[in-house]
Amino acid sequence: MSEYLLTVKNLKTYFPIKEGLIKRTVGYVKAVEDVSFSVKQKQVYAIVGESGCGKSTAGKSIVRLIEPTAGEVIFDGKTLSSLSDEEMRLKRRDMQFIFQNPYSSLNPRMNVYQLLSEPLKTHFNLTENEVQLQILEMIDKIGITEDQLWRYPHQFSGGQKQRISIARALITKPRFVIADEPVSALDVSIQAQVLNLLINLQKEMELAMVFISHDLNVVRFISSEVAVMYLGSIMESGSTDEIYQKPLHPYSKALLDAVPNIDPLKKKRRSSLKGEVPNPANPPQGCPFSPRCVRADDICRKEKPTLNFYKGRNIACHNPLE
């Protein structure tokens, strides 16, 4: 068996733009342009980027919640795109998804017991007794008490709701989970609690995880490898520690510089990035970052750099930082 549990090769997801009376396709929003990476067993791999960079679409395309336009996703030795719907449904037992907003991802008409038993009943042929046992085991881990099982989502706080949605994703004992901004809807003092829970469960259940986030601090804490995305493409990927210590791509550097520092004496004013993320329906020619990049020259504006191995990591840049 290969070292990698999940391999994503040249993933592309385009959304057609339709216009006019007969809904003719006039162009494409290239949400995910070219994404390749691999996740080892038990590894936490982070995808970081600003809103609209395609990180969530990439996550959903991997598990085929959105059908990718092209590219290959190999999970556990099987190419996912070749699977039939039924085969894919069975695979989902092993690969789960934690959504961003627990306020909208939990059905308000189901109580905790129903929410947690649904995935079990969908994927396994269990008696009611076995279902109960598994649920009790799970809620113990997430700090929900037995008498809370009959409550409905609105009776819980945001942090508790997100614990429930984590439990819902992990109750089928998957080997791989995608967490799409799992803490960004929560209050600051609650984020740390939920992250601790997620990390503990990840270690305990030996999960491989793709952690999608825009919060660079959280990514640094949680992941061993990271991919920095910009406008649908990976700009730089490799070891989290190395990239945070010394980003080689000008975009990674700008992104890291933009994070506010909690030390008021270091009110440094950084080389703040000019301009805004271009429209993915009408991306710039050449390197997607070239219009905002201080190091951009003629090749950058003409030719799109490919992701190449450079100084121990992958980087898509014609003029990397030293």
Partner: peptide
């Protein structure tokens, strides 16, 4: 503490128990 513990590699984040 919970913010600065994000900058240190460790097993656990510092967290304030309970709910808002």
């Amino acid at each position: 503490k919970s913010i600065s513990s994000l900058n240190e590699k460790g097993n656990q984040l510092y967290s304030i128990p309970g709910n808002v």
